[in-house]
């Protein structure tokens, strides 16, 4: 997979640079656990948006869905005392409905994905602030059991002092299923095909509307799952800013991982590596003295731009070589 070689190279470079510059602090088990957990949490939502980007669409509502679910779940559990299974079921149902509505509006009413999900971005956060009365939601000291799906660590045999953070299990499952879906099933092929040319796919007898809707449903479901895991991890969610801008982190990770916003391109492995790169960068900025923390976003932005530019340059050189043959 030559597509992910570039981004993998950047990741390895940044990791080595961080190890050197941080005197090895980077490699401490606790830090690695944290990094893996954050990569897992952001990776899940990035895979979701990856599906939508592959169809040539965009989902800007992810952060607000995270907010809606992340604040809504503790709100249902602690304020209304709903039983856990029913509250979780409600979270799944709502995420699914949101994706379905996005998909229907985009395919049947032919609204632009940017517009539909931008309105979603505004609405879901607004609705959340409404029903929570703008109050911080959290589990307090309750629900330790279920929260362990985000906070627990799974000990590894023969390895002392390091455990695999539980969200990593979710990421692995999501990534493996998504990878198989995208590469091994006919539906994955349909998504890649319609992302490149919706019309040709339709003329080939593919139900393109249904596939696009499916992509938005997957995206919102994974955003909802992300919302559940995020709130269980941090244990408090402020409706005003919980999940703010996370759609942009997710889109950035997907783009870093080789997804083209023009549609039709993208790999799950690439997206996960892209997410990991973003998280390592943020980690590096806190661990390393050389870079002042407040220029964090400048560094991340520059790396994304550099990665995308490098990618295009490689393609350009490759196509020149083909042309000159």
């Amino acid at each position: 997979m030559k597509k992910i070689v570039g981004i993998l190279g950047i990741l390895i470079f940044v990791v080595i640079a961080t190890i050197v510059l941080s005197d090895g602090i980077f490699l401490r088990p606790f830090n690695l656990e944290n990094l893996i957990r954050r990569t897992a949490l952001f990776g899940i939502i990035s895979i979701g948006v990856g599906f939508v980007i592959i169809t040539g669409g965009i989902d800007l509502s992810i952060g607000s869905v995270i907010c809606l679910i992340g604040c809504g779940l503790p709100w249902l559990l602690t304020v209304h005392g709903w039983p856990l299974p029913i509250a979780l079921f409600a979270a799944v149902l709502i995420s699914l409905l949101i994706g379905l509505i996005h998909g229907l509006l985009i395919t049947k009413l032919k609204l632009q994905p940017f517009v539909v999900t931008l309105c979603g971005l505004l609405m879901y956060r607004g609705v959340t602030r409404g029903f929570t009365g703008d109050q911080t939601q959290g589990f307090g000291s309750e629900f330790k059991g279920i929260r362990s799906i985000a906070t627990a660590e799974i000990p590894l045999p023969f390895v002392e002092g390091f455990g695999v953070p539980a969200p990593c299990v979710f990421l692995v499952v999501v990534a493996v299923v998504a990878g198989i879906f995208l590469n091994q099933t006919i539906y994955g092929r349909y998504l890649l095909a319609l992302g490149r040319s919706e019309e040709a796919a339709r003329y080939s007898g593919i139900n393109t509307d249904r596939m696009v809707i499916l992509a938005y449903v997957i995206c919102s479901l994974l955003a909802g799952l992300g919302g559940v895991l995020f709130v269980m991890d941090v244990n408090s969610a402020q409706p005003v800013d919980f999940g703010n801008f996370y759609e942009l982190y997710a889109i950035a990770a997907a783009v870093l991982g080789g997804c083209s916003l023009r549609g039709g391109h993208g790999t799950i492995v690439g997206i996960v590596i892209g997410t990991a790169l973003m998280q390592v960068l943020r980690n590096m900025i806190t661990l390393v003295d050389v870079i002042p923390t407040h220029i964090e976003f400048a560094v991340i932005g520059a790396v994304i731009l550099g990665g995308v530019m490098a990618d295009e340059l490689v393609k350009l050189v490759a196509s020149r070589r083909v042309a000159s043959k």
Binding site: N34, R38, F230, V234, A237, Q238, V240, N244, N283, T286
Partner: peptide, 9 residues
């Protein structure tokens, strides 16, 4: 004000 970032810090 990003709580996830706050925890990461």
């Amino acid at each position: 004000f990003d709580q996830v970032k706050g925890k990461a810090n």
